[in-house]
């Protein structure tokens, strides 16, 4: 089909109702990078997303704001404390100041009293630093917990190790460790950075029925992937694992051919 014919299907494609040949043609056409149709599909997605506003208005649960904002504030606080500090410079400055202050305290009591004000400020600053350090520690602890979960699944004798082979031979391999109860751990490194409008999505390809979305993820700044996602179907029913590249936010069903894939033995 040409662009003119495909234009009639933009909204239906964005809605996710297209199937069969029409959907395949649209996907193949978009995958070829047609600028006109990509822009048309993006605009259609914007139009269709307005159907969200047709949902009956519901009252927000009272505790939801806190559940969202608490970890966000913690993460922001950890980030605020994160910039590297020139500790060497501090070490050079602090002893001089400390010795001067100590000498002044020893020599003049009045001066020492005045200095107490400064010390209180210092104490407050130290307390603030300590709070930030605690928040940072919590964030690091969360990362550590995730890493431990990944390691637990990887090392469990009940896990099945799978190598997801890349379609593009220049891409690194993705490793999966499938545990029937603990979840599926996904690891990879040296992954290239992804365009901001795209995401990676892991699917279970069942022996029967449609692919099941398992997780949406991106490589971190170092090109590393390490995550654990729940296994919400019997392992015996999984025929293969696949990773596809999808628009940001993920897709209800794969919209592109798997970029990585591994069949279950």
């Amino acid at each position: 089909m040409e662009c003119e014919q495909l234009a009639a299907f933009y909204e239906e494609y964005a809605l996710g109702v297209l199937e069969g040949e029409e959907r395949a043609e649209m996907e193949a056409h978009l995958a070829r990078g047609c600028e006109r149709c990509t822009a048309g599909a993006t605009e259609a997605r914007r139009v269709v997303s307005n159907l969200a506003l047709a949902a009956p208005e519901a009252q927000l649960p009272s505790g939801l704001r806190g559940k969202i904002m608490e970890p966000v504030r913690l993460s922001a606080a950890a980030r605020a404390g994160a910039p590297p500090v020139n500790t060497a410079a501090k070490r050079e400055v602090f002893p001089a100041w400390a010795w001067i202050a100590a000498a002044a305290l020893a020599l003049i009591t009045g001066y020492a009293i005045r200095q107490m004000g400064n010390q209180n400020s210092q104490l407050a600053a130290l307390q603030k630093q300590m709070k930030l350090a605690i928040a940072q520690n919590v964030a690091l602890q969360n990362q550590l917990d995730e890493s431990r979960m990944v390691a637990s699944v990887m090392l469990s004798p009940d896990s099945t190790a799978l190598k997801l082979m890349p379609k593009d031979k220049n891409m690194p391999m993705v490793h999966a460790y499938l545990h029937p109860h603990m979840g599926v751990a996904i690891t990879a490194d040296q992954m290239p950075a992804m365009p901001s409008a795209r995401t990676l999505q892991l699917w279970f390809m069942p022996k029967q029925g449609a692919p099941m979305s398992v997780a949406i993820f991106h490589p971190d700044a170092n090109g590393v992937i390490a995550l654990v996602a729940p296994v919400k179907m019997p392992v015996a029913e999984i025929a293969a694992l696949a990773v596809t590249e999808e628009p940001a936010g993920g897709s209800p069903q794969p919209t592109s051919a798997p970029a990585w894939m591994a069949a279950m033995n």
Partner: peptide, 22 residues
């Protein structure tokens, strides 16, 4: 990493997003 900006977005979109998901 400005948490208050996310809170403003939650105030703006929290209800329609929750209504949709519900």
């Amino acid at each position: 990493r400005d948490a208050s900006a996310l809170e403003t977005l939650y105030d703006r979109y929290g209800r329609p997003v929750y209504s949709l998901v519900l």
